[in-house]
């Protein structure tokens, strides 16, 4: 929705009734003063603040990345140590159970050579030489 006032302000209407002309000029003058009123000049302090925060953020991201890498390395190292300890423990358990097994089960000792066989061996040796 636009009326003649809007059209004149937007530059769509070239001719404006004299009774409206003053009002339009007044409006434009007000806007000009208002535009100057809301002029903003950024301070050096603001630039430094924004820039510092940006640098701090970069450092923060970098620091976080390093910390994460260190954490991963740490977890991996810890896991390796734990793993080797488990292997050692398992090995010790196997050895221990083997010892236990050997000590609890009676082993069959070699039978002494029978006298008859002994004579046969002597006979064989004397036959050879």
């Amino acid at each position: 929705m636009k009326d003649l006032f809007d059209e004149y302000l937007d530059g769509d209407a070239m001719e404006v009734p004299s009774e409206l002309e003053g009002e339009v000029e007044r409006y434009r003058a007000f806007i000009k003063i208002y535009a100057a009123r809301i002029t903003y000049r950024p301070s050096e302090r603001l630039y430094r603040n924004v820039f510092k925060r940006r640098k701090f953020k970069t450092k923060l991201v970098l620091g976080f990345a390093i910390a994460m890498a260190a954490l991963v390395v740490g977890i991996f190292g810890f896991w390796r140590i734990m793993d080797s300890l488990t292997v050692q423990k398992e090995y010790a358990q196997v050895v221990e159970s083997a010892i236990e097994k050997f000590s609890s089960q009676p082993m069959e000792l070699p039978k002494p050579v029978a006298e008859k066989d002994f004579l046969n061996i002597i006979g064989f040796v004397s036959d050879v030489y």
Binding site: Y34, I38, T39, Y40, P42, S43, L46, N49, R53
Partner: peptide, 22 residues
């Protein structure tokens, strides 16, 4: 920054817009 500041000044109706610009 000047443009951001003046829009914020107008929209909020305040002169203290450094935090907004930041």
């Amino acid at each position: 920054a000047p443009r951001i500041g003046s829009i914020a000044k107008s929209y909020l109706g305040t002169d203290d817009v450094d935090d907004i610009v930041q």
